[in-house]
């Protein structure tokens, strides 16, 4: 059986987990077994709906304390459930929580693990999973040698697959181990689209000259419904918050559309964004290296081009 761990934040199921579920269901079909989901905590979304993404059964451990992450507690419980259910593959989203828990679960299960997976395993000759390495500059095909396997799948690498079915819900009763950490404060970032989940991203670099000029970028992002990102020097100088820093030493993203404004396209920056489906570069220097990695390019002054692009987006939206 393929067991998919469903991650939540604020009692809402993460989109990355629905993608992991789609992946798990496709994998279960390929190896000829059932695909089931595991949910911790008190989630508000209707769990039967997980059937739409391929779960036949949803196992729920309904306990409020599990709403926030405690790696020791979560990994112990996930491993116990996986063992009890005889799971052969446990799938996670390679997101903040998945990254923290999946490796610990793999140790507890004596399972091999591939994190950052980006395709279904090739089971022709063993069990080979493809993952991104060198921050997206290459791929490695990893042969998994253990009977039980753990896979953490990259966001936006498989997509959502929908079915027309509902899942049955099974409640699990297990003793919750004592907490290993105490959460004393939560600071929420309100109203922003999380960068790693965004389909559309508008990003700015040093070419925007200063934080006071970000308005034109934010207007474009708003018109598109896009999340915002930036290059490293921009977050280093506190023009923008750290969590917007993308690249080799920031976060790596793979949206459908990445619009780079006043970013030169240094190799370390490209490493974080080159898996984007479509890249648009706006730069006044026709020699900027980013154009080599772009699908569409606009050679021009961002301060003139970006407002025009925003207007064009709004015009197209109004026409729809």
């Amino acid at each position: 059986m393929v067991l998919v761990y469903i991650d939540q934040a604020d009692q809402q199921i993460k989109k990355a987990s629905l993608e992991a579920l789609s992946y798990g269901a496709a994998l279960a079909k390929e190896i000829g077994c059932a695909s089931e989901a595991l949910v911790f905590g008190t989630v508000k979304d209707p769990l039967a709906d997980l059937g739409k993404f391929g779960a036949q059964k949803v196992h729920q451990l309904k306990n409020e304390t599990l709403n926030s992450l405690d790696v020791k507690v979560h990994s112990t419980l996930i491993a116990t459930v996986a063992k009890n259910l005889n799971a052969t593959v446990v799938v996670f989203a390679h997101n903040i929580n998945g990254k923290a828990i999946a490796p610990a679960v793999s140790v507890k299960l004596g399972a091999g693990i591939v994190t950052g997976a980006c395709s279904l395993p090739n089971t022709q000759n063993g069990f080979v999973v493809r993952k991104t390495v060198f921050s997206g500059k290459a791929f490695a095909n990893i042969k998994m040698e253990t009977p039980i396997k753990v896979i953490a799948i990259n966001q936006n690498s498989f997509g959502l697959v929908e079915y027309n079915s509902a899942a049955t819900i099974v409640e699990i009763k297990l003793d919750i181990p004592p907490a290993s950490i105490k959460i004393t404060k939560v600071e929420k970032i309100e109203g922003e689209i999380p960068l790693t989940e965004a389909n559309l991203v508008v990003s700015g670099g040093r070419g925007l000259k200063g934080p006071e000029n970000w308005g034109i970028l934010l207007d474009l992002a708003k018109a598109l419904g896009a999340a915002t990102a930036c290059s490293r020097p921009v977050s280093d100088t506190d023009w923008r918050p750290h969590h917007e820093h993308v690249g080799q030493t920031g976060i790596q993203i793979a949206p459908n559309l990445y619009i780079a404004i006043g970013i030169s396209g240094a190799i370390q920056h490209l490493a974080g964004v080159n898996r984007s489906k479509t890249i648009v570069v706006i730069n006044k220097d026709p020699e900027a290296p980013f154009f080599k990695a772009a699908d569409y390019g606009v050679v021009g002054d961002a301060f003139e081009v970006v407002p025009k692009l925003t207007a064009a987006v709004l015009k197209a939206k109004a026409a729809n």
Partner: peptide, 17 residues
């Protein structure tokens, strides 16, 4: 528990429009 069997590089972009 795992072994790298092969690496590969992403296809290069066909050129900017």
């Amino acid at each position: 528990t795992t072994n790298i069997s092969q690496f590969d590089l992403p296809p290069s972009k066909s050129g900017v429009k």
